[in-house]
Design a protein around this nucleic acid. Structure first.
Lengths: 211, 211
DNA sequence: GTTATATCGATAAATGAATATCGATATTCT
DNA sequence: AGAATATCGATATTCATTTATCGATATAAC
């Protein structure tokens, strides 16, 4: 049970969690690092090292206990209690996220959305109200919300970011294709499609050139 | 102008590209590694090293030429010619992607979407036709499409993945929250929201505990 | 023209992550 | 019970990435 989880390891955790939950559904009780590695396209040693950092180990000849591992990983990821979040920007992407049921599984709960456009303010999406941006701070403070999701166009993302920070948000999930500046204490996770596309494109051109 | 770009460096490229395009709009001609680092929250040396791998350098006392850098980065990322792609799964996320105008900027062009649900087959989203999945292979082969985007539920993602590979796709952008298996030659880029959430949650719990 | 300064590139050192090795241990088989 | 085996954890090694150092060079100031 290591004290600090490396960022790379952390990023693999959801893969493990996903697989383990499937196994759990299939009533599989034990699982070895080797078989996890096989199914996930990783190597056994890496799996063992990753798991060592969150769980207190498996047993020789038996492996790990699936259900225990699930609990351990969810705990390490902070999935145990639901994290409330607000979303700013009720456009296409924003509404897609609002209606995405899967977040609950990860312990994320979007409580409300905010926008400035009078056409969408007052409506709701999948049961989640879209409020005027001026109500943001009040709601965040009253509900002690710590996670903010930004789905506005790039040009106003920084303004929204500042507003969120002002409202007490300390973790920001940014879908706008721009770099946001904030104090070091604020975590900003950029969900930049361009990054993924860059990797794909680069791979693709490399592949096409080699032939 | 290095021969191989590391994955970490590659992931930072869109950040640079973004900033440089802004500078270019503001008619800024030259830029130094140091100022890029400041604006992006990186360190100067890292910026210099990253840029060295794609451009053939800046000049002392002057820095880099903004417009040249943009060209160099876009070339390195393979953004120069438009990459055609197909999308499978015309649900919420699928349709959000279909209507997202920003992809053009990154050189990605979704030519058509596929689904199995008769209710959506035959309709279109933002001018893009939604076809029956059985037409997938034919269209990909005729149009020599190499990129596939998966936005179906997790339980059928693997089947779709296999179909795409069979249709000649060599780069897959997977939005389904599951691990996909394919031959090593096929690049699979997982856009797993759970990964980002994991990082956020982990940071958040760490932050809340330290106080 | 000479000197000072900003900024670069190349090389070296430090850090962090992935992989390999090996001994230890729980179960199974004889 | 004792040997064989699967599987683990700890430590060591290799590899990748980041950060530091330093000399070189283009411009600006004097």
């Amino acid at each position: 049970m290591g004290s600090k989880i490396s960022i790379q390891t952390l990023q693999r955790m959801p893969m493990y969690l996903n697989l383990l939950k499937e196994k759990d559904k299939s009533e599989i009780v034990n699982i070895s690092a080797g078989s996890i590695a096989d199914e996930l396209g990783l190597v056994e040693i890496q799996v063992r090292k990753d798991l060592a950092s969150v769980s207190n180990g498996g047993k020789p000849k038996i492996g790990y206990i699936v259900s225990d591992l699930i609990v351990d990983i969810e705990f390490a990821l902070g999935y145990t209690d639901v994290n409330d979040a607000v979303l700013v920007g009720a456009g296409r992407i924003g509404r897609a996220l609002l209606s995405y049921e899967g977040f609950k599984e990860y312990g994320l709960n979007i409580v409300a959305a905010f926008d400035i456009d009078e056409k969408v303010v007052g409506t709701d999406e999948s049961g989640k109200q879209i409020l005027h941006i001026e109500k943001l701070k009040d709601l965040c403070e009253r509900m002690k919300i710590r996670i903010g999701i930004i789905t506005v166009p790039a040009f106003c993302a920084q303004v929204v970011c500042d507003m969120l920070v002002d409202a007490g948000i300390i973790a920001i999930w940014n879908f706008a294709p721009t770099y946001l500046k904030a104090h070091d204490d604020i975590m900003i996770k950029n969900e930049n499609m361009a990054v993924s596309l860059a990797e794909l494109s680069n791979h693709l051109t490399a592949k096409l050139l080699e032939k």
